[in-house]
Design a protein around this nucleic acid. Sequence first.
DNA 1: GCCTCCATGTAATTGGTTACATGATTCT
DNA 2: AGAATCATGTAACCAATTACATGGAGGC
Lengths: 169, 169
Amino acid sequence: MLGHALLGLLAGHPMSGYDLTAAFDGSLGFVWPAKHAQIYPELARLAESGYLAQSESGARGRIEYVLTPAGHAELRRWLLETQPSRRPRNEILLRSFFAWSLPPERARDYFLERERNSREMLAQLQTIADSFDVKTPEERAYRVTLEAGLRQTRVMAEWAAWAAQQYEE
Amino acid sequence: MLGHALLGLLAGHPMSGYDLTAAFDGSLGFVWPAKHAQIYPELARLAESGYLAQSESGARGRIEYVLTPAGHAELRRWLLETQPSRRPRNEILLRSFFAWSLPPERARDYFLERERNSREMLAQLQTIADSFDVKTPEERAYRVTLEAGLRQTRVMAEWAAWAAQQYEE
DNA sequence: GCCTCCATGTAATTGGTTACATGATTCT
DNA sequence: AGAATCATGTAACCAATTACATGGAGGC
């Protein structure tokens, strides 16, 4: 799974493991977190499978990778011929499932804190969304994805507020 | 993580691994999927840690577990003293990030299919929600959690429709 | 000379999935 | 008798996280 994310990112422009790590630390991390410890070995594997080639090796041992034609083909295949499979896990909802086992005020606290968190994150996402204009196809895809984050975060905040009310009196 | 989900379920009533597996196949699977192959060894580990005890062993080798006081304490501790940590991964959004690399009509197809899927799931969840009344605290928690699923699924359907439009013309 | 950032890696462990394997009971 | 369901387990593998480890280049 991470492999395809790396192919997708490299389809935009050649990058090093370090650059990719930075991408996952940024916006992409909201959608698919990954650490360098996973990224470097995966890059090596992708290169060995022929999906990537080293484009440039800069200072300080920096290694830059580019997609090979086989890499492009694999990315396409993944996007077009396979279905999103993974059932997402949601720890917040898992805990909500067990909220009945807490004293109602503790449950309420839990949901109110979720609301706060969601609103904070919403503000962050909103700031990102406001301060960027969409010119390239990549930026459009980014903006579309960000929009999903905004809408999801917004409903979560509303839901959490509503859930807190359900545990009132 | 799965451990705490098991403690939470068993806090309601004693169950066997088989019953727990069924619970994860049902509604809980939307929020936290798990298979018997993971559940059975985890139950053994929880029992060894003193969080569970065998309550009854029925026919066909059936083993039923109950929460011990230590198990209750651990569940409480998890709910009250730890934060939901895990950054959720979302494969649908990951793919949306890379939609720019497809011909626009293929991207559109992708989002329209997401919309269809979401609407189907929404209908399923709605059916569950309609055909159940809330009497016990457990049922209330279930209903509250289900509400999150309904709202999230609804916005995803709307977002997907909107995203498809972004790739029009 | 020291700190920060750039840059890459490995090892150990945990969490989760797929596949293999087996046997008892109930229903038709 | 045969099929479906109840019931539990293990082994191999894949994915991801945490911790350990190292070194170069640039700024002060």
